[in-house]
Design a protein around this nucleic acid. Structure first.
Length: 610
RNA sequence: GCCCACGUAGCUCAGUCGGUAGAGCAAUUGCAUGGUAAGCAAUAGGUCACCAGUUCAAUUCUGGUCGUGGGCUCCA
C-alpha cells in the first residue's frame, strides 16, 4: 500500500498501483543518477523518467540520459549498482523544494548542468519549479518521489545505449543507462527469467533453429531469403489471403517492380519520400527507380479506361514487393528490412462510400489478425505530419472519416499526432513482440492527394466528372514483418494449418519403413503435409528431433500399428494421445486444418536443458 | 546514420597474457533393429569476418571496413 504525504510518496508492502510504481521507478532513476555522479563527477544530466509501455523495459524500467567524457560500457553497470546500494543503505530523504527560476538557473549553472539550464529556460511562466534533493544530488524535477532512498528495494541496471538529446538526430548523442526496479528481489528474478524466456522466442533465433529464413551479408543486409519451411508457411498465408480477398470483393493485380523516375515526380514521392528510395538506374538513357510503393501502379490501371460511379468502389489488391532504404542501424531481422512484400490494396471510392469502405477494411483487418491468433494489439490514429501534401480541409475530412470508423468499431485507440504519411492520415495496428516492442503491421490510409496529382476521375450520375478518393491499406503489413511477429507469437510452434510439416511418421525400426512410406503417401494425397523419418536411429532420437522442430503430430509406427493399419498419435504439447486408424487420424487433422485452429500454443515445450 | 558492445567449424560456444586452434550438437561412414525426449564408435570439417599497421612472428595488439546485437532517430 502506498500513501501520499506532502507531495511525496511512501512505500510499504509489494503491491503497487501503476502510478505509485511510476514514482518508485522515477526515484530509482534519481538514485542511479546520484550514484553515477559520485563515480563520475562532472557528469551532466538530461532527463531520467520511468519507461512507458511499448518502450524498452516498458512498465518496469527507467533510464537516465547523461553526457560525460567517460564512455560507459556494460562493465560499468555493476559498479554503479554497488554505489546505488550504498545510497539505499544510507537511507537519505528525498527533499522537495520549490524555487524561483532565476535561483534554479544559477544553481544549475554553478553545477555545470547546462541541459537542466536549457530545460529551465523553457518552463512556462507560472508553472512551479521544483527541485528534488537527496544527499549531495539535486535535480530539476516535477516529482513526486518516494520519501527516502531506503525504500528502493530491488533494481538492476541492464543496458547502456545512445540517445539523442531531445530525440533529435541533429543534436548531441547522449549516453542512456537503462534499469528496472521492482518492489522485491523475487519479482526482479522472475522478470529476468521471463526476459530470458522471451529471448528464446526471438524470431531471429527461431528462424535459424527451425530453418525458416536467412539473411546474408554477402548478398546485403535487410534482404530476406525464405527457406523451404518458412516459404511453406508464407505460401499458406498467401493462399488464405487470396481466398479471403476474393471473398471480400477484391480483385488482384500484378504490377512491375520499377518505373521511370518521372512517374515518381508526378506522385510526389521524389519530393516527400526521396531519402528512402534507391538511386535511379539508367536504362537506354532514361532513369528508372525501383518501387518503394505500389500505389502509382494501381492508379495506372484505374486510368487505363474511363470510370463510372457504377464501377466504384474498385478494390484492387497486390502482394507487391517494394524496396526502401532503411538506415543501417534500424535493420532488425524480418521486422525491419530493405525489401519486403506488402499485402497491399487500394480502394477507389466516392466520397459518399468512403466511411463505409473504411469500416469494411477495418473489419477485414481484425478478421485476418484474429485468424492468425492475434487478439491483443494497439490501435492508433495518426494525424498530419510536418512534411505533407494536400489541403487542410482534405486532411480534416480524411481524419474525421477514420476516427468515425474507429468509434463505430468500438476499438480502443490512441491518437498519434503527426505520424501520418505524407499523403494522408492513417489507422495503424501494432503488434507487440516477445520483448514488448511494438511493430506496426496493419495500416489503413485515406488519400485525397494522389487522385488529385494523377487527375483521377469518374463520371457521376449527374453526368459530371468527379474525383475519387483512395484508401491504401495493408492488413498484415508485410509478409516479412508479419511472419516475424507470427513466429514469436507461437514461439515457432505454428498451428496445424500453418505448420510447414503437419505430421511426421516415425517407424520404430527399419521393418516399418515401408508401412510409414505408404501412410505418408496417403496423408500427402489428402493434402496433409506429412514427412517420414526413416533415418537409421532409435525412436527416442526421432521423437526428440520432431519435438525440437515443433511438428504438431508425431505418428509412431511399430509392428502393432503396421499389422492393424493404425498410427500411435503423439501430439505436440500433449504427448501420447492414443492409437487411431489412419482414416480416423486423417479426419481429425483435416478438420483442424480446415477450421484453422490456433491452439497448440506450447506450454512446457522444452525441458530445462538447452 | 549516431552511441555502446560483439564477429573462432553448419549450429551453440571454449581458447590463445603474440608462436597459425578445441568441445558438444549437426554431417559422413560403420556397428547396434531399437516402442514414446539424444544407442555406440570412427572420420571429416576452420585463410579464427575482411583490409592495413606494429612485430622475427598476429586469430590474439592498433587502426579502418563490412556485418550483427541493444538503444536513438526513422518506419510496413
Amino acid at each position: 500500500m502506498w500513501r501520499r504525504a506532502r507531495g511525496d510518496w511512501l512505500v510499504s508492502g509489494k503491491d503497487l498501483s501503476p502510478e505509485a510504481y511510476e514514482v518508485y521507478r522515477h526515484s530509482a532513476s534519481h538514485l542511479m543518477a546520484s550514484a553515477i555522479e559520485r563515480l563520475h563527477p562532472g557528469v551532466r544530466f538530461a532527463i531520467g523518467p520511468p519507461t512507458q509501455e511499448g518502450e524498452k523495459f516498458g512498465g518496469v524500467g527507467f533510464y537516465y540520459d547523461l553526457d560525460m567524457e567517460h564512455a560507459l560500457s556494460p562493465e560499468d553497470l555493476p559498479r554503479i549498482e554497488e554505489e546505488m546500494r550504498k545510497l539505499v543503505a544510507a537511507d537519505l530523504p528525498f527533499e522537495r523544494e520549490e524555487v524561483a527560476r532565476g535561483a534554479a538557473i544559477a544553481l544549475f549553472e554553478t553545477r555545470g548542468q547546462d541541459y537542466k539550464v536549457e530545460m529551465l529556460r523553457e518552463i512556462p511562466d507560472g508553472e512551479p519549479i521544483t527541485l528534488y534533493r537527496h544527499g549531495d544530488f539535486v535535480d530539476l524535477c516535477r516529482g513526486p518521489h518516494l520519501a527516502r532512498t531506503g525504500e528502493i528495494r530491488s533494481f538492476r541496471l541492464l543496458a547502456v545505449a545512445g540517445a539523442y538529446w531531445r530525440g533529435d538526430e541533429t543534436k548531441r548523442m547522449l549516453q542512456r543507462v537503462y534499469g528496472v526496479a521492482f518492489p522485491d528481489e523475487e519479482s526482479l528474478e522472475t522478470y529476468l527469467r521471463n526476459l530470458e524466456e522471451a529471448e528464446k522466442r526471438d524470431h531471429r533465433k527461431l528462424g535459424k533453429e527451425l530453418d525458416l529464413f536467412s539473411i546474408d551479408e554477402r548478398f546485403g543486409p535487410g534482404l530476406i531469403f525464405w527457406h523451404p519451411k518458412g516459404a511453406r508457411v508464407r505460401n499458406e498465408i498467401e493462399r488464405f489471403w487470396y481466398e479471403e480477398h476474393f471473398r471480400n470483393g477484391y480483385d488482384v493485380l500484378y504490377t512491375p517492380h520499377l518505373a521511370k523516375e518521372r512517374l515518381w515526380e508526378v506522385s510526389g514521392h521524389m519530393s516527400f519520400y526521396r531519402e528512402r528510395m534507391y538511386s535511379p538506374m539508367d536504362i537506354d538513357g532514361t532513369n528508372y527507380i525501383v518501387k518503394p510503393m505500389n500505389c502509382p501502379f494501381h492508379i495506372h490501371v484505374y486510368q487505363s479506361r474511363l470510370r463510372s460511379y457504377r464501377d466504384l468502389p474498385l478494390r484492387w489488391a497486390e502482394l507487391g514487393t517494394v524496396y526502401r532504404y532503411e538506415q543501417s542501424g534500424e535493420l532488425h531481422g524480418l521486422k525491419r528490412v530493405r525489401g519486403f512484400t506488402q499485402d497491399d490494396a487500394h480502394v477507389f471510392c466516392t466520397p459518399e462510400t468512403l466511411a463505409g469502405e473504411i469500416g469494411r477494411v477495418l473489419a477485414f483487418t481484425l478478421h485476418m489478425l484474429r485468424t492468425f491468433g492475434f487478439d491483443a494489439f494497439d490501435v492508433y490514429l495518426s494525424t498530419r505530419p510536418e512534411k505533407s501534401v494536400g489541403s487542410d480541409a482534405d486532411w480534416e475530412a480524411a481524419t474525421a472519416a477514420l476516427r468515425a470508423a474507429l468509434e463505430e468499431s468500438a476499438l480502443p485507440f490512441t491518437v498519434d499526432p503527426g505520424e501520418g504519411v505524407f499523403y494522408g492520415p492513417k489507422i495503424d495496428v501494432k503488434i507487440r513482440d516477445s520483448l514488448g516492442r511494438s511493430w506496426q503491421c496493419s495500416t489503413i490510409q485515406v488519400d485525397f492527394n494522389l487522385p488529385e496529382r494523377f487527375d483521377l476521375s469518374y463520371r457521376g450520375g449527374d453526368g459530371a466528372e468527379h474525383r475519387p478518393i483512395m484508401i491504401h491499406r495493408a492488413l498484415l503489413g508485410s509478409f516479412e514483418r508479419f511472419f516475424g511477429c507470427l513466429v514469436e507469437h507461437y514461439a515457432g510452434a505454428f498451428p496445424v494449418w500453418l505448420a510447414p510439416e503437419q505430421a511426421r511418421l516415425l517407424p520404430v525400426s527399419e521393418k516399418e519403413n515401408a508401412y510409414a512410406l505408404r501412410v505418408g503417401e496417403k496423408l500427402r494425397a489428402s493434402g496433409v503435409r506429412a514427412g517420414v523419418d526413416d533415418a537409421n536411429e532409435t525412436l527416442g532420437n526421432k521423437i526428440r528431433k520432431g519435438r525440437e522442430e515443433r511438428i504438431p503430430y508425431l505418428l509412431i509406427l511399430g509392428g502393432r500399428e503396421a499389422a492393424a493399419g493404425t498410427v500411435s498419435v503423439r501430439k505436440r504439447g500433449e504427448g501420447e494421445t492414443g492409437v487411431l486408424s489412419v482414416d480416423e487420424f486423417l479426419e481429425r487433422i483435416r478438420g483442424e486444418i480446415e477450421r484453422r485452429e490456433t491452439g497448440l500454443v506450447p506450454r512446457e515445450e522444452k525441458r530445462s536443458n538447452r
